[in-house]
């Protein structure tokens, strides 16, 4: 894996962290669902599934 590719995984993890933080803080169910939808592709990439 190249250094730049590693940076992309770090960037993805950063966005995942921010999304989870916001997910925990929000009280609105619609927002919670949106956070979950936004998290899906990022988690799949972090786990190197797709």
């Amino acid at each position: 894996m190249t250094f730049i590719m590693i940076l992309y995984y770090v960037m993805t993890a950063y966005v995942v962290g921010m999304l989870i933080w916001n997910f925990i803080k929000t009280k609105d169910i619609k927002s919670e669902i949106l956070y979950a939808l936004a998290l899906l592709p990022l988690i799949l990439r972090l786990l190197r599934m797709k």
Binding site: V15, M18, L19, N22, L34, L37, P41
Partner: peptide, 20 residues
């Protein structure tokens, strides 16, 4: 700023995931 940005963009991020 990052946290607020991600919050601001969540509908767009969810849209790109769902459109895919």
């Amino acid at each position: 700023v990052s946290k607020d940005t991600v919050s601001q963009l969540t509908p767009l991020l969810a849209t790109t995931a769902v459109v895919g």
